[in-house]
């Protein structure tokens, strides 16, 4: 089973919930950080890394000798990564999306395959937990191809829990689309409600069961609760606001370990997630 933890905006507690959930998970589990722009799960799980590979994308390399400046490559490239100017062929490797179009259309064989570094894929162990993550190179704009390289190492013999990037754009969709269950982490505030709504709308077409973790409850307003009730989004867990949670998080600790009274809530969450995946979610409070 693949579980993706997502949120319409950052800072709702997605990584906090993810770290605790993998820690209490009672079956073999792989924790995967797909928030490759800001991968933070390792800061909490503190894995011992044992492997690393550089993720690369295929880009064209030109041979000016063979090039006749016919312009076929320039014409097919939608990203302006390859351009003929006068008699000269110019490439802009950082703009390439790796579609391979230019190589396929070049009639002279003047283009060959090169590579651009996107970032790195890292893996290791945090106790019994298998750990896997991607980290985008600073200044690199394209995360989906790096995420594809991370996903190639998903272990189907284990349950997989993914920390997805926040938001509802392309990288977020990419991270959750192969999941069996999507868990949206939000908070009962106007921002939380608005971003939950965006996330639900973005992920609904994927057609996977979704549930909500309502974090830092006890403050804010009812907007997010009303929305869950109206749209039939089950609330799988509520985590009441507690200053100690913020403090433990700031010290790099996993809440389920550092605050034993919260441990039971995450065990409960694990059970709810399994029910949701199996399509037999028991009655939940829904606020």
């Amino acid at each position: 089973m693949i579980i993706a933890l997502a949120s319409g905006k950052g800072g709702t507690g997605k990584t906090t919930v993810c770290a605790s959930l993998v820690r209490i998970w009672d079956k073999p589990v792989q924790a995967v950080d797909l928030d490759v722009e800001e991968p933070n799960l390792a800061l909490y799980l503190k894995p011992e890394l044992s492997g690393r590979l550089i993720s690369e994308m295929e880009i064209p390399v030109s041979d000016q000798e063979k090039c006749t400046a016919c312009g076929a490559c320039s014409e097919i490239c939608q990203f302006k990564a390859i351009t003929v100017l006068g008699e000269y062929l110019l490439t802009f490797p950082e703009m390439c999306h790796g579609c391979g179009g230019c190589l396929a259309v070049c009639p002279e064989g003047a283009l060959s395959l090169g590579a651009r570094e996107l970032g790195e894929v890292l893996w290791g162990q945090a106790g019994e937990i298998d750990f896997l993550m991607g980290r985008l190179r600073v200044g690199e704009a394209m995360s989906p191809p790096l995420m594809r390289d991370v996903k190639k190492r998903l272990d189907s013999s284990r349950d997989v829990i993914i920390d997805a990037p926040p938001g509802t754009s392309c990288p977020a969709i990419n991270a959750v689309k192969d999941a069996d269950v999507i868990v949206l982490v939000t908070e009962p505030t106007p921002f939380g409600f608005y971003d939950l709504k965006l996330a639900r709308e973005a992920f609904t077409p994927i057609g996977k069961p979704m549930g909500v973790v309502m974090n830092r409850t006890g403050f804010g307003d009812a907007g997010a609760y009303d929305y869950c009730r109206a749209t039939g989004l089950p609330i799988l867990l509520e985590i009441p606001y507690d200053r100690r949670v913020a403090e433990k998080y700031s010290q790099g600790e996993v809440i389920a370990d550092a605050l034993p009274e919260f441990r039971g809530r995450f065990i409960e969450l694990a059970a709810r997630i399994r029910e949701l995946a199996a399509g037999d979610l028991k009655e939940v409070s829904n606020g």
Partner: peptide, 15 residues
């Protein structure tokens, strides 16, 4: 409406 490469496209137009 170009997501990227407007400057390169413009250079091409000028050339």
């Amino acid at each position: 409406s170009m997501a990227q490469g407007a400057g390169i496209q413009s250079a091409q137009t000028v050339a």
